[in-house]
Design a protein around this nucleic acid. Sequence first.
DNA 1: ATAAACCTTAGAGTACACACCAAGGTCAAG
DNA 2: CTTGACCTTGGTGTGTACTCTAAGGTTTAT
Lengths: 137, 137
Amino acid sequence: MKIGEFANQLGVSTDTLRYYEKHNLLTPSSRTGAGYRDYGEAALKQMKFILRAKNVGFSLAEIKELLQIKFKKHQHSCHEVKNLTIQKRDLVAERIAELTRFHQSLSVLADKCCGGQEPADNCSILTTLEDIDGLTQ
Amino acid sequence: MKIGEFANQLGVSTDTLRYYEKHNLLTPSSRTGAGYRDYGEAALKQMKFILRAKNVGFSLAEIKELLQIKFKKHQHSCHEVKNLTIQKRDLVAERIAELTRFHQSLSVLADKCCGGQEPADNCSILTTLEDIDGLTQ
DNA sequence: ATAAACCTTAGAGTACACACCAAGGTCAAG
DNA sequence: CTTGACCTTGGTGTGTACTCTAAGGTTTAT
């Protein structure tokens, strides 16, 4: 698959794909005779992974580290690879905990709001939220 | 509280605080006679909220929207405020689901790895993971 | 065989989120 | 009453992650 079709399928630009290649996040499976990038199934999976990681707040540098868990196994001990994996897993757990608190706060706000057509400053619940305590606790 | 002490308590720079003020994310409670910024308890709470939101991957623009749920109530209907809140809550829920899948995948990798001193490519489990399917599914 | 629609590299430009610096005002301690 | 640590505004610089442009080569359809 050439870069244009590949980019279309994933909803990203061809520039982004070339940028990721340059920064060692995604290398196309091969090149055609004319030097065109040729992306395969593995590249598709890896790119989907990158996009999902990005979507939940990982930087490209962090994503690169995640991807290298796989590549590092050829140069490092089981111990090191396991430690890196656990470290990343715990980071993810922290973010989940943080997001769960956000979700809880937003749920409280949403559930208690009447949802009517009147101006919201008359909403009995919102009126009591004179500061963002409900979101900060 | 002057900007220096406030910044110290939160572990951010004074530059960051002035930047947030300029971009309407956090306005100090008042100014002293000399024109110094004076931050109070409400500012502290709001800043903590901003930092936590940032930490889980929200952009400053998104955080501004979250904060405006509070301010918007004076100009918009309960209905609109509730919808915005629900929309943001659902976005958070999606991120939690995604992160949970990440956590699961990383747990599988970590738990099955022997963790020994030998090169990781001899680890019976990792050897079978010839691609990153474990992370992409 | 030529136009349109693709592709190539290299390099410059942009938006976000700060970080740093200059020139100068304010304030508490010695 | 001055030194040093704070504060002010305004402007410039930096890293990240793209985004666009220029100049040109390739492929497909008519």
